[in-house]
Amino acid sequence: MNAYREITHNGLWKQNAVLGQMLGLCSLLAISNTAVNAISLGLATILVMGMASLIVSTLRGLIPYEIRIPVFILIIAALVTVVDMAMNAWLHELYLVLGIFIPLIVVNCIVLARVEAFAAKNPPGAAAFDGVMMGIGFVWVIGLLGAIREFVGQGTLFAGIDMVIPGLSAIQVLPEDYPGFLIAILPPGAFFVLGLMIAGRNWLDARANERARQRLLLAGQSSHA
């Protein structure tokens, strides 16, 4: 299953929606002020992406090429509306926080991009898998961003977890009297932390490339000898 491995690698790292393609930054920056908020929005996005990819791929033979974009948007918008209403009904507390950002998943370019670039050309199984992997790629980045901002900003992790799973409570990582670093939780902090994360990814990639080059050089030398 080499193809599935490639999909996984693309979604989680190489073509990662945020770190690689810089798509969907609006909701990403706005909602990543705590880990719970970030992961919740990420999970909603996975759900929409997986379902949208599956449906588009299944129906791809029926969708005329000329109107594919309106149809894609129609499908995505309907799915988002369904997720929105379901969340409002069953996760109401969380919905009050994420509320305005759920509808924004419709215009999150990641969803349309994957549907157009992948799901419309590949069989349902692979398409759904790709949607979910791209979604997981989004969720780990937004989750990490949210966790860093929350940790630096208020010294906790998973504050507000009781909105999703009643009974659990936040982890107080730093002492209670930590004065906080408010800017990390406010919008500017999102830009700072995301910038550092992208720099980190580029650094890791550059290091990996450098190592690969070294290996190639070594291999070349040994074959000559």
Binding site: A3, E6, I7, R60, G61, I63, P64, Y65, E66, R68, A113, E116, A117, F118, K121, N122, P123, A126
Partner: peptide, 19 residues
């Protein structure tokens, strides 16, 4: 984004139905 690179070998249907 819509370059053919994205089409994986497991594609089993004729491309771009509209055409």
């Amino acid at each position: 984004m819509s370059d053919p690179q994205d089409r994986l070998p497991l594609d089993d249907t004729p491309p771009a139905p509209g055409e």
